[in-house]
């Protein structure tokens, strides 16, 4: 019975899985502590726009030369339209926290939220 188990799973296997999960957890915890309000639109490696999302009062669209439209809203940024085949970029939805990113790879366009904020209150009145 033990022999059979040895063939399916061995201690070293479990250590590998544990190690991968541990790394994932550390990365996740680090990322979870970053909350940000600065967004970037990156085209072909170049940052073509840096936007402070917390200063955005009205939603607006940024239309790029390559057929991609990015929507900037107070506190969020997302892909609104694209001429790419799979529209994965649009399905990525809205980005609202630091470390989040979405890309339209065929159009070589990436949007992401950078920056770091102290952990703020649940809400701000006024």
């Amino acid at each position: 019975m033990k022999d059979k188990l040895q063939k399916i799973v061995r201690p070293a296997d479990l250590i590998v899985v544990a190690a991968v999960l541990a790394v994932a957890a550390v990365l996740w915890a680090v990322l979870a502590h970053l909350t940000g309000t600065t967004a970037q639109i990156v085209c072909d490696g170049e940052v073509i726009a840096t936007i402070d999302l917390s200063a955005v009062k009205e939603a607006y669209d940024v239309t790029l030369d390559n057929g991609v439209t990015v929507r900037v809203e107070p506190g969020a940024i997302c892909f609104a339209a694209s001429d790419c085949a799979n529209l994965l970029c649009i399905h990525a939805g809205k980005l609202t926290r630091a470390g989040q990113s979405a890309a339209c790879l065929p159009n070589k366009t990436l949007i992401r939220i950078t920056g770091r904020d102290r952990r703020g209150p649940d809400a701000l009145t006024g």
Partner: peptide
């Protein structure tokens, strides 16, 4: 819940 009061 923590709610911040805006600094006027």
């Amino acid at each position: 819940w923590t709610v911040g009061i805006r600094d006027p």
